[in-house]
């Protein structure tokens, strides 16, 4: 009888406190160095320029291009519909809603791969998902999409299809105007937005 009252005297105030305080929703995300290395080794963060071009042309609403070069360079040239988040400024809370979300597919790009990949590493370490890197950066983009090299006519069909796609894409995205052949634009499969393995899975239940 008395024990029940003691229990009530302790647990009711605790319950009232826990009902009154806001829930703690901060995620203590921490990727171990090993996990990060695994992801870097797998290279799952990379998207080919072809995949990015395809999404751009199809006006995929989930695509969000993020230019991590500085503002000057961004002014001179940038990809369509991209936003500018310079790498040095990436931790600015102002950008958080862009780089920490689960609706869009963010693709970082810079001139090469390096800066964009650094941006990805930082966001990944913070635990943010859905961020990717355009492999090869703008240099590779210009080389492949804007000025694709015509493969020899003996090349395998895929090579030729890829070339046609790139030529068409380059034209559509404002590159050198070329007379596009009836484009055999391949529908590239959607880039993987699949959730990566999240830490260890907890098992449970009976």
């Amino acid at each position: 009888m008395k024990a029940r009252l003691i229990l009530a005297a302790i647990i009711i105030p605790l319950g009232m406190i826990i009902a009154a305080v806001p829930e703690n929703t901060t995620k203590q995300f921490r990727l171990t160095a090993n996990e990060l290395l695994e992801e870097v080794k797998d290279g799952t963060q990379f998207l080919q320029p072809d995949e990015v071009a395809d999404m751009l042309i199809q006006k995929d609403p989930t695509l969000q291009l993020i230019d991590v070069r500085d503002a000057d360079q961004y002014e001179k040239f940038s990809l369509p519909n991209s936003i500018n988040i310079p790498l040095v400024d990436i931790l600015n809370p102002e950008w958080k809603e862009y780089i920490n979300q689960d609706v869009k597919l963010n693709v970082f790009y810079s001139n090469g791969t390096k800066n964009a990949n650094e941006a990805w590493m930082i966001t990944r370490q913070l635990g943010f998902e859905n961020n990717y890197v355009m492999l090869g950066g703008l240099n590779y983009w210009v080389e492949t999409i804007m000025n694709p090299e015509k493969p020899a006519s003996t090349s395998p069909d895929e090579e030729i299809a890829k070339y046609n796609f790139r030529k068409g894409a380059g034209a559509a995205l404002g590159g050198a105007a070329v007379n596009t052949q009836p484009s055999t634009m391949k529908k590239s499969s959607k880039p993987p937005i699949s959730k990566r393995k999240k830490k260890k899975k907890v098992q449970g239940g009976c």
Partner: peptide, 23 residues
């Protein structure tokens, strides 16, 4: 009631260590 509190503590320990309850 004391026993129940102890049971609750064991359960919390299981969650804290292994992220799962008893079974």
């Amino acid at each position: 009631y004391l026993g129940g509190v102890l049971l609750g503590l064991v359960l919390i320990l299981a969650f804290w260590v292994s992220g799962r309850g008893l079974g």
